[in-house]
Design a protein around this nucleic acid. Structure first.
Lengths: 248, 248
DNA sequence: ACTAGAAAACTAGTCATCTAGATTTGTGTC
DNA sequence: GACACAAATCTAGATGACTAGTTTTCTAGT
């Protein structure tokens, strides 16, 4: 029943399955530690097992799930250590990419970013948090593209998804209006075509973002105490006990 | 006939197929532009199509092949632009990772690298080029591991495979004994626990490596004039005409 | 009630088969 | 010979059946 969310739109059932499953992981309808049965997913999405397997293989490659042969497929949450790894990688790549973008971004693209920034206003009002996130996302993505390196672009886009997941996982995260100033500085650096400065501003921006993510650390602890992924190793793992399906 | 190179050793047929296919791509038994039929691979490796598909999906994710639905799977060579992308990414990541490694590498691991270096000798004699490459590889891998970031480690290991492929693709590459001095400097920087210096030395090392790679540019042009990959895009591509199998 | 062990259920891995679409080949026409 | 069109062939995509292994559940024995 329910519905058939993916009727092989026009991208193939495997790609559609990938999108749907990843989407559910991203918004935590599939929580970390949850078991994903191929047959159940196939039935639920109205496709055979093959496209599901293709989708899961890709998700595994991107680090979203872990497969234990003959046992089960589990949603892999990021441990604190892995979150730090993501942060560390961003801190290396993003400033460098911002530096490249300062030299390579087209004036048109830059003007577009500037317009989007001006349109936003001067502070992050109550209900406009999502809007700010969108602006931030647009800025980062534009920088990734402008750097003109497809390899790095792919890595960063995937990384940004993980950051997004982390943000949704952690506490609602306070974000002061000063964050807008960071984007303003970033734009200014890009417009001045000063790679060094753009890199430095980006570095600061990411450090601040992480600071507002890290402080929960023991405060809100949303729901599950410590589900996490059940050891991606081929060894005898200890998969968390099968949990009742959250989704209706 | 031939043989059955992978009898599902102990890692599963899919993983074995992945290794074998990637190995053949790496040493150019599967050349860029060559068409890889799933059924042919399956027959050749003595497995069904499913493990082949799993292996190909992974190789696709890593950028080694491109799949055109209902048309064919093609070995994806790296264009000059993509080689530059690899180089650019290395130039960003490796110095940063070397910096981390300088702070985090254990003294034992460091001593092991030192021993391997001392054992090599003072210059790269005639028949010892492969030996030098092994030393270089060992050093780089040790640094990747010592940085203690699994995410970056995975990226760099995959990247190193591409570098390896590029090296085998380009001209035999001249490598002067001065390259040994670079490794010596690198080790010294690591031993002094000076992250900044390690990063700078690594940066120089990579720049020199690239220099000796780039100079062919129009010299030896080994075999195929310009096979390359047939547009990974979903659009109407122009797959190179099926070529006779090179392997006997 | 509790443990041990057997049986049932469930899992991903693999295979053979079928399908839809792209490509190549063959053939007739001019 | 050159072109247009149709048929045959080859491709990856997808499916259902089956396998080997794990995990859970049931049951017998104490």
């Amino acid at each position: 029943m329910t519905e058939s969310p993916l009727a092989a739109a026009d991208i193939g059932r495997a790609a559609a399955s990938y999108r749907e499953i990843k989407s559910r992981i991203m918004d935590r309808r599939f929580a970390p530690g949850e078991k994903l049965s191929e047959v159940r997913l196939a039935a639920e999405l109205g496709v055979g097992r093959s496209p599901i397997r293709t989708a899961l293989a890709r998700l595994q490659g991107e680090g979203w799930i872990a497969v234990s042969p003959q046992s089960g497929t589990y949603v892999k949450g990021l441990t604190d250590a892995e979150m730090n790894e993501v942060f560390e990688l961003r801190l290396i790549l993003e400033p460098a990419v911002a530096g490249l973008a300062a030299e390579r971004m087209s004036s048109e693209e830059l003007a577009k970013l500037r317009r989007a920034f001006e349109a936003f206003g001067t502070e992050i009002a109550e209900g406009r948090v999502e809007e700010y996130f969108a602006l931030d996302l647009q800025t980062h993505r534009a920088i990734y593209s402008a750097a003109g390196n497809g390899l790095i672009h792919g890595i960063l886009v995937n990384l940004l998804d993980k950051v997004h997941w982390i943000q949704r996982t952690s506490v609602g995260s306070p974000r002061p209006s000063s964050a807008l100033g960071e984007i303003r500085d970033l734009l200014a650096a890009l417009e001045s075509r000063d790679g060094e400065r753009a890199a430095q501003v980006m570095r600061t921006h990411i450090l601040r973002t992480a600071k507002f993510r890290n402080l929960p650390a023991g405060a809100t602890e949303a729901e599950a105490p410590a589900p996490e992924a059940p050891a991606p190793s081929k060894e005898k793992a200890e998969p968390t006990r099968r949990r009742a399906r959250a989704a209706g």
